[in-house]
Design a protein around this nucleic acid. Sequence first.
DNA 1: TTTCTTTCATTGACAGCGGAAAATAACGCA
DNA 2: TGCGTTATTTTCCGCTGTCAATGAAAGAAA
Lengths: 397, 397
Amino acid sequence: MSPPSRAETFPAHTPAVSQIFTTVLSQGPLTRLELSRRTGLSPAAVTKAVRPLIEAGYLVEDVAEDAPPALGRPATLVRVDGGRALFIGIKVTGDEIIGVLTDLRCRILVVRHLPLPGRTPQQVLAATTGLVGELLTEADGMDVTVMGLGVAVSGDVDRAEGAVRYSPFLEWRDVPLAELAAMATGLPVTVDNDVRALTVAEQWFGAGVGLSDFAVVTVGAGIGCGLVVHGRVVAGAHGVAGEIGHVTVDPAGPLCHCGNRGCVEAIAGDAALVREVRAATGTEVADAAEVLELAHRGVAAAREAYARAGDAIGRGIATVANLLGPERVIISGEGLAAYDLFAEQIRAAFHAAAFGSAAECDLRTRPLPFDEWARGAAATAIQSFIGSEPVRARSTP
Amino acid sequence: MSPPSRAETFPAHTPAVSQIFTTVLSQGPLTRLELSRRTGLSPAAVTKAVRPLIEAGYLVEDVAEDAPPALGRPATLVRVDGGRALFIGIKVTGDEIIGVLTDLRCRILVVRHLPLPGRTPQQVLAATTGLVGELLTEADGMDVTVMGLGVAVSGDVDRAEGAVRYSPFLEWRDVPLAELAAMATGLPVTVDNDVRALTVAEQWFGAGVGLSDFAVVTVGAGIGCGLVVHGRVVAGAHGVAGEIGHVTVDPAGPLCHCGNRGCVEAIAGDAALVREVRAATGTEVADAAEVLELAHRGVAAAREAYARAGDAIGRGIATVANLLGPERVIISGEGLAAYDLFAEQIRAAFHAAAFGSAAECDLRTRPLPFDEWARGAAATAIQSFIGSEPVRARSTP
DNA sequence: TTTCTTTCATTGACAGCGGAAAATAACGCA
DNA sequence: TGCGTTATTTTCCGCTGTCAATGAAAGAAA
């Protein structure tokens, strides 16, 4: 039972309050004066924005422990009370759904997997509802309310409407998933594309904190990319963006399922690795994990496949860097388990193909447990909860 | 002599005033109510924002001429008084500078060309000062003040600082051009990259009006690209962005001056066209104009060169569309004179390589007289004058 | 101990922006 | 002349963030 004096909603969604909270959330404990510097608000405005957040229990004060003996009044730190609210994130894949229970700081508390009986909206919705129920039961013991549910799905997703426009993988068209899930669970629901959700998580809680222009590249079964430009995740006018997987790197390369030749994904995706090793060795290879094992055992065909994959990924990243000039590119995804096998190739290809000072972009890798996809979904729920949705009038800015 | 009651500075740079003025400037004459709808402001706020703009003479009222007999009080249109202020735009090329005198609506009034005696900052500055002087003389007869000077230079330009970081073409490094030009001319000066300047012009006065996500691709000696994402021109963290010319479309293609193979520019730039035709026919070919003539006369080698160029450009545009999902791509540049020769190839290659609904992007061509580059420079000066510079605090948005 | 100095934080008066609602204006039409 | 209708303006009001001064909490100096 939470203290009755605390309202269960977030304080007013005024710009300053949202901005202050978001800054504390992503940039760790900060003093008010430091907040003032980072946000450009006056110290007075910071005080006024912090107060309701502390009263509502979302922020707490904290004395700096390892404070070096400094002159003047010691600063009090302000940090987010992660335990103040809980969120659930769900990632839908082809054969299972993964759910996480996180706190307000998007730290994973519980992970649950559930196999999918099928891929129809009804089946996925039923499984989601079940998994959410399990996680809610877990949350019951924690005396804190679950404030939102985020769902991440691959494909063309309209986040504002909470609808899946088209998901080739699930074979869905125009499914109002947010509405359905909200009805079934009673929670506020956000639905977003999986790569974009992961990008939000990186932007707020990961390697993208404090950056206004960066990219996340995921390597795995497919090759995906989330872009942050001018501090906002790029959604694309037609729901498609960040399709680095279908950037052509070699028009004479292997055929891709999209119909073209030499897409990054057709060279560096899991299926491509398996196919290449199969063709080169003549032996049956089951999956990417086996290719990885062969490569680590020193099998030349497998190592070469990884080298080609690294080259394609590096070129793809260079294309992103040449077009957008991001400060950083975060390379992640399940395929990163094999990072030692393509690291060198990625960097070499990137530096060869990056134009001018685009090469100064910081390439950084982050291991990505599969759960992180679900965490990304939770991050979108947190974003929505604290009301920092990007909304703008329809005029020329 | 301008009326003494009119202040020579723009009314307060409050958000609403800037937004209203920008909207009227780019979306033509509008009624106040329509402005309210387009900006999301209340009708009252529109009235209050419009008044000081009218008092200062930047906006004027206008009765709708072709008004269909409608019910109720007839609306009064509000439009920008182009004659209220003048601006000068300068484009620096390798061997000459081009200057335009424009009105507040960025309509070109006078064009002047001046050959460059050399490329040192001193020489370019002297020529610029001279050309600005000539244009100021022209302006003298118009009884209106020149309010700003914009300079467009190719290369890595830091617009905020008004400095040219690195221009390979001019062989400049860290030239504080804005400061120098301001000293020499006494005008407020903006300095920006040439393609970005052109993009600003399209965003406010051209085919990008009302769009928050689009791209401008310029075809000519080089292949350039300006990107608008989330309503703002992309500058790139390291000063480089939009380098579509150095996106690889064929790793086995011709060597590019950037050191790589098969860049768009290495296939579709003027130099590439000349080189290919020269190699195929064995005859001497002077420049791109001659290639164009040969192609129009039906010479196969020339037509094929254009076909390959169109293919490369189409693939490059598809890459942009796959990554960013723009609503529209505006194809422009001097090379567009040969558009009939590559139109088909551009579209075919684009549609083949665009992934999913990225193909819904609207490809549109705009002829670009060379003067337009200078007009772009003037557009940056106008933008700066009316104070809609994108400024944001350094926190996570 | 007392008093400075320094830095962090808060307060309270205040200005200005933008919103809501009501009033006003300018028509066609009966 | 009134009435309905749409556009615009006015009036008032709340809210947000700034400014300038004040308070708070240390260490340093006297």
